[in-house]
């Protein structure tokens, strides 16, 4: 499945004195199997862009195409669209509402008009994917779970739609370090099992570790588009935009500035560790 943005512009409250353009002439294509990180300053238009992917927002001009079809053309079914593209908002646990975990996760499939058997199967599958035991959790109220568990249930509610593309807005926001790591590993495993991931993130360290491609937004336009290695090579440009650079990337740049002959653009801990050990051992050999 392929998602294509063609000259997409979105203006909020057009024609009113409060009108503001959140994204402007955005063009890009995402193919199946990518792990795309969407980064940018708050207010750069990331969330607006994300809400265009499954048609929650309609472009003021331009087109959003899925497999070549305009999702806002009259023949395109919204139901199919919602099924294909799942959207997990920031703090998704704030949208839980049913009495039991099972019912809440079943909400999406039920809206699709599936049979009870099919719904049950999907609920079980979704819970398994997020790492919660069906028998233990099905009867629980979503409101009596821990923060991390609530978020998993909310994720399961979207996964039960069996989306081919999952759009996540800051999925790890507000979680403590270990829940955060669990959540990111969960997303990685979804990616590995074939789901296309589009993830909005403020954490460059997460982006560096998981993304296969990075889209940098700046004032509503796409400022950079490339692999993490490409993007973090331009650390100075990112910093100019008020964005962070992964800690490792910053240290690598510091070390190069201090005169160590390290390659440009290292942004992973393992890579820097290996490079430094080589350098140090090399120095030792050289001396002896």
């Amino acid at each position: 499945m392929q998602i294509e943005f063609k000259g997409v512009t979105h203006t909020y409250q057009e024609g009113s004195p409060f009108q503001s353009t959140a994204i402007r002439d955005v063009n890009f294509t995402v193919s199946s199997g990518e792990f795309l990180a969407l980064i940018g300053h708050t207010g750069s238009g990331k969330s607006t862009l994300a809400q265009h992917i499954n048609g929650l927002l309609r472009p003021t001009s331009g087109q959003v195409l899925i497999d070549g079809e305009d999702i806002h053309s009259s023949g395109y079914s919204k139901k199919t669209l919602r099924q294909k593209v799942g959207l997990v908002f920031q703090y998704p646990e704030h949208q839980l509402f049913e009495e039991t975990v099972e019912k809440d996760i079943g909400f999406g499939p039920r809206n699709l008009g599936l049979s009870e058997d099919e719904i049950l199967e999907r609920v079980q599958e979704a819970l398994r994917k997020v790492g919660l035991a069906y028998d233990e959790f099905r009867e629980k109220s979503p409101f009596e779970l821990s923060g991390g568990q609530m978020r998993r249930v909310a994720m399961a509610g979207v996964l039960a739609m069996r989306p081919e593309v999952l759009v996540l807005d800051e999925p790890a926001a507000g979680l403590d370090p270990m829940s955060r790591e669990d959540m990111l590993q969960l997303i990685r495993s979804l990616h590995e099992s074939g789901t296309t991931i589009i993830m909005i993130s403020h954490s460059m360290d997460d982006v560096a570790r998981f993304a296969t491609r990075v889209l940098v937004m700046k004032k509503g336009t796409v400022a950079m588009d490339g692999t993490p290695a490409d993007i973090f090579l331009h650390a100075d440009q990112l910093e100019e935009m008020g964005l962070d650079v992964p800690v490792i990337c910053r240290m690598n740049n510091d070390l190069r500035r201090l005169g160590l002959p390290l390659p440009e653009g290292i942004y992973e801990e393992d890579a820097l560790f290996t490079a430094l050990m080589q350098l140090w051992k090399g120095g030792e050999n050289h001396a002896s």
Binding site: L260, L276, W280, G283
Partner: peptide, 19 residues
Amino acid sequence: HPEETAEEVARVCRLNSKA
């Protein structure tokens, strides 16, 4: 902190190559 760590690593590595 990243800055002090980078400085210390650079110092040790340089020491090594000079020695």
